[in-house]
């Protein structure tokens, strides 16, 4: 096939149903569409089943954001890392550490809240930076380095205190109670912050050189280097972003739970990764959208809500449903990547 025979809309100019199907499979937006459709279908199913129990209330929908704001922020960080072709296992530990660290600063040391927040974000971002630095400069698998980060931050939690620290600071509780009315319902500060993070992440990924470099090194790191892109700097920045997002997620989590506990958010990195993958980001990197991650988190949140509405089901069904979904979405990814290879 020569270039001259390409019509301007080459990739989807297929006329037969089959080639249209394969063009659709090749479209990188497909997984996001699938996830969004799944979310809608689940929502409608929930409506028809639990309508009499108030599932149709707008607030039920908005609660998805309130109850999962921290996960959303963590998943945005995970999306950056996975897009770049890496993985970050330290997310849950950094979240747990942030809750402990902030609670300790505010309750035990009497540090004013705004300063504690800044310190917590700084420590999280710095931890991410260090991991990125080690990954790039010593050419070590991100899996191993962030696994070390996982243990390190969890250990640091216990260094601060073995007991949980509940937060009685009045500004924290008033922040946690604050609700912003949207007419149909209301959102918490945490949910709003998560939405802002989504918006900023979208802008960064699609409208800045840094964002495009994240996609480029996820697509082919070697090529990115040969094209003269600063792939090392980008990588380090990606883990810094993830560390920052984890710390922010930790703050939101603390706001949600109003305590610091050394065992908060154990394993949450896996939820973040699951949400990202269900949202259509390829684990191999280079393909995916932060909007997909939003839907991924919403789907996971909706599963929880539905199980609550069902009432009789054990909450472990959340895990089972997540596992099944994850498996299905990995298979879709596989179909996509194998199609791209031929």
């Amino acid at each position: 096939m020569s270039a001259t025979t390409q019509t301007p809309t080459a990739p989807d100019s297929g006329t037969t149903a089959k080639s249209r199907f394969s063009a659709l499979l090749g479209d990188r937006r497909l997984p996001v569409l699938v996830t969004a459709t799944l979310f809608l279908a689940m929502y409608i199913a929930g409506l028809s089943r639990y309508q009499n129990y108030g599932f149709g209330e707008p607030q039920v929908f908005l609660n998805l954001f309130i109850d999962n704001g921290y996960l959303l922020v963590a998943a945005v960080g995970a999306t950056f890392v996975i897009l770049s072709g890496g993985i970050d296992l330290s997310v849950g530990s950094v979240i747990g550490f942030t809750t402990m660290f902030t609670a300790w600063l505010v309750e035990r040391q009497g540090v004013p809240l705004p300063l504690a927040v800044l310190l917590a974000l700084g420590v999280g971002a710095f931890g991410g930076f260090l991991m990125g630095y080690v990954i790039h400069n010593f050419e070590i698998q991100p899996f191993i380095v962030t696994l070390a980060g996982l243990f390190l931050f969890r250990g640091l939690c216990l260094v601060i205190s073995k007991e949980s620290i509940s937060i009685s600071d009045s500004s924290v509780s008033s922040l946690a109670q604050t609700r912003v009315s949207l007419g149909l319902g209301e959102l918490s500060i945490g949910a709003l912050a998560a939405l802002v993070v989504i918006g900023v992440a979208f802008y960064v990924l699609h409208y800045t050189r840094f964002g495009r470099r994240v996609y480029a090194i996820g697509g082919n790191e070697q090529s990115a280097m040969l094209m003269g892109l600063p792939q090392g700097r980008t990588k380090i920045a990606v883990y810094t972003v993830s560390g920052f997002c984890s710390a922010l997620a930790g703050l939101l989590f603390m706001l949600y739970i109003q305590s610091g506990d050394p065992l908060h958010a154990v394993g949450m990195e896996l939820d973040a990764i699951a949400a990202t993958v269900i949202g259509g980001t390829l684990l191999t990197g280079g393909s995916g959208y932060v909007i997909g991650t939003l839907f991924g988190v919403l789907v996971l949140g909706l599963i929880k809500s539905i199980i609550q509405f069902e009432g009789t089901l054990s909450s472990w069904w959340t895990k089972i449903a997540t596992g099944v979904l994850l498996c299905a979405f990995i298979l879709i990814q596989r179909a996509m990547t194998s199609r791209n290879k031929t």
């Binding site: 990188r28 699609h206 409208y207 800045t208 050189r209 495009r212 470099r213 996609y215 480029a216 996820g218 697509g219 082919n220 070697q222 090529s223 990115a224 040969l226 094209m227 003269g228 892109l229 280079g286 393909s287 791209n340």
Partner: peptide
């Protein structure tokens, strides 16, 4: 040595995309 996941235009320009106030 290009990135297959990016568009043709991006592959031509990446690293020196036209920007305005940092926005591509």
């Amino acid at each position: 040595n290009l990135c297959p996941n990016l568009s043709v235009a991006e592959n031509i320009f990446i690293g020196r995309e036209p920007t305005r106030f940092g926005r591509i």
